[in-house]
Design a binder for these strands. Structure first.
Lengths: 354, 354
DNA sequence: CTGAAAGCGCTAACAG
DNA sequence: CTGTTAGCGCTTTCAG
């Protein structure tokens, strides 16, 4: 390994001078010496040792990312956003993946094992002197367990802490659902079915709030029987949509694209065409939502921006001591494709009667 | 920050003793002192500084992962595999994401910008004293640009270097395609259409090789007009399948699930049902392949295992100096679902004639 | 303009 | 059993 010491020997100056020259301090050495030092360093492929530098300067330019599960579809894009912001600001990233799905078969939320695992990761990152930590949840929910005696900026992405001692960045489920509902209403739909996720889910609750508010603002009464609860899986869309159709809805808002795919299947079986006989809206903008026939209108969560924002919060706190502890809600993007038709319920029923 | 120095002062021993005790060296101090030191350390939440430790020991227990694009669907699972293996062996991960797609709009392969970016990342990782590096491509292809003067184990995942100076881990495209073809043949199919990716693609070539070999082994002639070249996108499946149908194929092997989704669309338009009137096989096992109607039979690449294997190669070299420079091909898993029917071409044609 | 010296937090050889 | 010492590679006063 080539160090400044060796370069100092070769160029017959002190290590201090080499250090100064290599760090671009002007006037650290005569022009000739400066050139010589730089040349020798280049020829020997000198590479500064960040460990030593960081140790000395008490600064690592590194933040840690803890992902609950990197293989869950939304996580990579969030990590990508964090990474992008960090790169622009010359920060490095250490990654720790909890692999909660594979590890605990999706049955883990706030168990002792989860806590222990998290504690171990936290200790590790702390030992590696990260300057901040982003915790990336795999779905929005309240996290009861707070990191104990954390001494660096900590921010939650895609989930939020019980007490708002730490900031968190999510997206605006409520607003997105409100917008979808309005869009459906503007297209003439009055009887709109909803297939939610589980009732306990944060997403379900927030989206339902937005959805109901839109109906209220348009003086449309909300029928409880039109609000059904699935489990986010394809199958539940398939099973549940039938009763909505029986009740005569002209549009269905599925709270994710996966359940929407089940709806495509069921409607096809029933001889109905999405986008013609029934309108459909999804959520998530999964990469295949464009591949359905017809392409599914859906909501794209601002995953990349969530990541960027988290990194920004950390770095702001680090650089400018600008502290913020609030929950942030970033806006979603709505993609209108071909799964929504503008038909009133009357027209639909009339056609169905034929 | 609490250091061993402070603990040494408080417990009135030397830092060496504290270090020994905290590292579990038996007989480093009397039982009483040992207990006292451990207690004090715990109470003050002492956390060893890995920078100092690594600097001293010339060992970081860290490997670097360079991803071409973390948001491309197969990458996270590979990273997950690397991470899993590293965690089991107490190694940490530094992540650098090149973001090639977003950055260069997918027009970047082996450009000078790509090289410069890679060089910068490599220098950085080297400065951070990583002990090995995994380079994760976003699709299998030959990488012409080799990392210059790399001094640590380096392995390619999901791509391979021009000269085999470095090991690489991929999956066995050829074998997978062979198996799919055999499966189709066993189900009575004799006239099988293929929708490949671009002809220059490694995947296309390898899969085509496997496919043709299977047909040859079963003495089925290969008609060039049944082999069409798409561009991996949905649209090309949609556009190309028509001519295969016109030529009377009873099954189509689409070289990815995305193009298969276009085939679903087109066949539906033509009043044909996948899995009944025509058989279909995909590739990739994208998360939505189960969501098609009927569910798509497809090939799952061993992404997680590729990641694990890469980490294993690195750590083996590190620990046991077990060096290997070969290209490794891991086996894929075939998922038989409902998009394949067992019908001979005669039966299909007979039905179509009706 | 240049260098000596101290020290970041830790480990490890060696001496007592 | 315990402590002294040297030093990992680097930065940073401070003195010449």
């Amino acid at each position: 390994m080539v160090t400044i010491k060796k370069i100092a020997q070769l160029t017959k100056v002190s290590i201090a001078t080499v250090s100064n020259v290599l760090n671009g301090k002007t006037g650290a050495a005569s022009e000739a010496k400066t050139k010589e030092i730089i040349d020798v360093a280049r020829n020997l492929h000198y590479m500064p040792n960040m460990l030593a530098k960081s140790l000395k300067q008490q600064k690592t330019n590194t933040i840690g990312i803890i992902t609950e599960d990197l293989t869950v579809f939304n996580t990579p894009e969030i990590v990508d956003g964090i990474d992008a912001y960090c790169e622009e600001n010359e920060y490095e990233i250490i990654l720790a993946n909890m692999r909660l799905f594979k590890r605990y078969n999706n049955d883990f939320t706030d168990t002792p094992r989860h806590h222990n695992l998290l504690d171990a990761i936290l200790r590790n990152m702390s030992a590696r002197q990260v300057e901040g930590i982003v915790y990336v949840g795999y779905h929005c929910r309240e996290i009861a367990y707070l990191p104990p005696q954390i001494r660096v900026p900590f921010v939650y992405a895609y989930c939020y802490p019980k007490k708002s001692t730490f900031p968190s960045v999510m997206y605006d489920d409520e607003k997105a659902a409100f917008d979808v509902a309005e869009l459906l209403i503007h297209n003439g739909h009055r009887k709109i079915g909803v297939i939610c996720g589980p009732a306990v889910s944060y997403h379900t609750q927030a989206r339902l709030r937005g959805f109901k508010r839109a109906l209220e603002e348009h003086c449309i009464s909300i029928k409880p029987e039109l609000v059904l609860y699935g489990d986010w899986e394809r199958q539940s869309g398939y099973c549940l949509v039938g009763s909505l159709i029986d009740l005569g809805v002209s549009a269905v808002f599925s709270f994710n694209d996966l359940m929407a795919s089940g709806i495509y299947e069921r409607t096809t079986e029933l001889g109905m065409q999405v986008g013609k006989d029934i309108s459909l809206f999804g959520f998530d903008n999964r990469d295949i939502s464009q591949g359905y026939v017809p392409a599914l209108s859906t909501v794209e969560p601002p995953l990349h921006d969530i990541g960027r924002k988290c990194a920004e919060i950390i770095l702001n706190q680090l650089k400018y001591h600008r502290i913020q502890k609030k929950r942030l809600y970033l806006p979603c993007t709505i993609h209108e494709r071909n799964s929504v038709c503008s038909k009133t319920i009357k027209e639909v029923l009339a056609e169905r009667a034929k």
